[in-house]
Structures are given as C-alpha cells and as structure tokens.
Design a protein around this nucleic acid. Structure first.
Ligand SMILES: [Mn+2]
Ligand SMILES: [Mn+2]
Ligand SMILES: [Zn+2]
Ligand SMILES: [Zn+2]
Lengths: 166, 166
DNA sequence: CCCTAAACTGAGACTCAGTCTCAACTCGTC
DNA sequence: GACGAGTTGAGACTGAGTCTCAGTTTAGGG
C-alpha cells in the first residue's frame, strides 16, 4: 500500500526478469530514492545513506543506480553541472527542465507541441529518436526578484558542504 | 583574408578588451580549432597539437577553451557522453543536435518554432532564459539502413584509439 | 627600441566522479 | 539446508578537468 513499497516491488519484478537479486542494499536505496529524493546526485545519495547509518558502498550505489536506470524507474539527466543527476520516474512521465543558474532550482515542464516538432525534425532528417534532453538555463522568478545575477550556482557550494566522502 | 586569420583577430579583440594577451599558444589553438575541428573534445585538440609538434600543455588547452567560450567564439556542449565537447561558433549561429548513438555522428538543426515555444514556456514560468541545450539521441539514417542497434557508439572507441595522453 | 609589470606557460600534483577487482558474503531455488 | 549465481565493500584505479608555482612572454609607455 505505501507508495514506496510498490516501487520496491516494481524493482523486484525487473530484477527477477533479469535473473538478478533483490538485496537489502538495493531495497534500502529504492526506499530512499522514492521517499525523499527527487533530483539528486549519486554522492548525495551515498551520503544520505551514511547519515542514516545504512552502510552501503559507493560501488553499490552506482551499480544500483545503473540498474534503476535500466529498469526505467530512474532517469539520468544533465542539469548544467559537470556530473550526472538522477530523478525517479515513478508515475511522472517525460518532462524537461528549466534550471536556475543562481539558486540551482529546477522547474519541470512538458510541452507536447515541442515534442511534436522534435519528432517532425527527426522525420525530416530520417533520424530515429530514442531519447531526448532539453535543458533551459537561466534565472528563476524569485532569483530575478532578488536581483541576482546569473552565475555560480550557490547550490554547488551547498552540496559540496553537504558532502562527506572518506 | 583567410577566414582563420579573421577568427584570430576576433579573439585578439576580445583578449585586448579584457586586458589579456594573445600568445603564440592561443593563436595556434584558434587556428587549429577554426580550420579543421567542428565538434571536438579538449583532449582530442591537445593530441592534434602534439601531432603537429606544436607543444602546448593540457592546462593551456583548457584555459584557452575557457576563454574562447567566454568570448562566445566557442560553445561547450554535451553530446550524450560523460565529458564536454566543444564546437566553434564562427558565423554559424545557435543550433541543437541530433546525435547518433551508433556511429557518434552529429546532425545539427535549428527550428525557430521550437525556440519560440521555449520562450513561451519561460514566460509562463516567469523564468529568464540565458541559454539552452537540446539533444536528441537516436540512430541516424545510414546506421538504420545498416540495421545497427542503438547502443555503444563506435566513436568512443575511435577517439580512444586516437588519443595519446602521456 | 627597451623595460617592466602583468599576464602566461608547462610540469606535474591534485581533485572528483565514476569504474573495476576480488575475496568474502547473500539470496533464492532445489 | 546446500549450493551456485549473483552481490557486496574496500580500496585501487581511471580519466577529465583544475590548480600551483617557478620561470617565460607579452604589450605598451618611456
Ligand atoms: Mn525532473
Ligand atoms: Mn553543433
Ligand atoms: Zn533561482
Ligand atoms: Zn549513425
């Protein structure tokens, strides 16, 4: 019944299908990802687990994320920084991102018309699309009101501070 | 008169404006970038220079690329791999990319209608865009004809082979 | 043309995200 | 409950990119 349990189940399903195993580590990660995180970094997740005294190695975090991406339950995205971010897909379907370069905030959007035009272009170029990725960088409403200049995201520092490693 | 010389000049202009200097290394890099490369990686450029026996350090390559990006003459893009690619902007204005995940080929496109819709979304979300980035991954025409499955780009291996480092 | 301060360079140490290895362990099925 | 395939963690490793600093080059004022 709890939504998180359902996600663990979905993952279990996928793993079984692949002849893989559901371990306590994998369960813990899925629960964490689907109960709190939305857009997150691998190391952030690693740290969160450490915080909760759930001991999971860096390797396992990366390996599990890879599986989750393969299963389609998690998406790996570029958000304008030089490493990947992840987001769980759960019910929510495809969308793209507006990314504030001042506060690091992310606004999601979906525009069927843009999607349609993309398909049209692919057709014209005889290109078979499998996936796409649209990021618009800029300054969000509240940052604009605070008169922020678009540059060095504070979030980078924030996350850096949050991080432990070693 | 040669187009490349004009680009060196543009860069000179920019550097002067910033109180920076045009060095032989920077000149060599601009000449190389604007005469042969289109989408390229930093290390690929480093290697090309080594090949031509123009000795330029890794640090200088990265520093110069950063300046070129600041000057607007070069754009830094994600092409679906986990490191940056660069492309010179010269006359050619904004465009986005179709990227073949089989052969690594890149097709450029520009669709004013998509651009317009993006602006509309930003307006609706009260977001001030400064920049955007749209990649569509998939399989190009010739790869489709060769019946290639969309996966592991050969280009990665190709580039890896091309590379020297140390 | 020369002098000089400011900018620049290369070598290599360093960082950091991500991957790999391998011995010890765990899951799930028989 | 036994077994083998699959998994784990520790830590070594990779590769892109950054930083440091001593020595070098540039540009522009004299
Ligand atoms: Mn999202
Ligand atoms: Mn391009
Ligand atoms: Zn903001
Ligand atoms: Zn192709």
């Amino acid at each position: 019944m709890p939504a998180v349990a359902r996600e663990v189940d979905r993952f279990q399903q996928f793993l079984q299908q692949q002849g893989l195993k559901l371990t306590s580590e994998r369960t813990a990660l899925v629960r964490e990802i689907f109960s709190t995180h939305y857009h997150f970094e691998a190391d952030e997740l690693l740290f969160k687990m450490k915080e909760k005294s759930v001991k999971i190695s860096r390797a396992t975090v990366y390996r599990t994320l890879e599986l989750l991406v393969k299963s389609g339950m998690v998406r790996r995205v570029h958000l304008g920084e030089d490493h990947y971010h992840y987001e769980h897909v759960s019910g929510n379907s495809h969308h793209d991102h507006l990314i504030c370069t001042t506060c690091g905030g992310v606004i999601e959007f979906h525009d069927e018309e843009i999607e349609r035009l993309q398909r049209a272009i692919c057709e014209k170029k005889k290109f078979t699309p499998t996936f796409h990725n649209l990021q618009i960088l800029g300054v969000c409403e509240s940052c604009t009101r605070r008169g922020e200049t678009p540059d060095a995201p504070d979030r980078v520092k924030m996350i850096q501070a949050t991080r432990l490693r070693k």
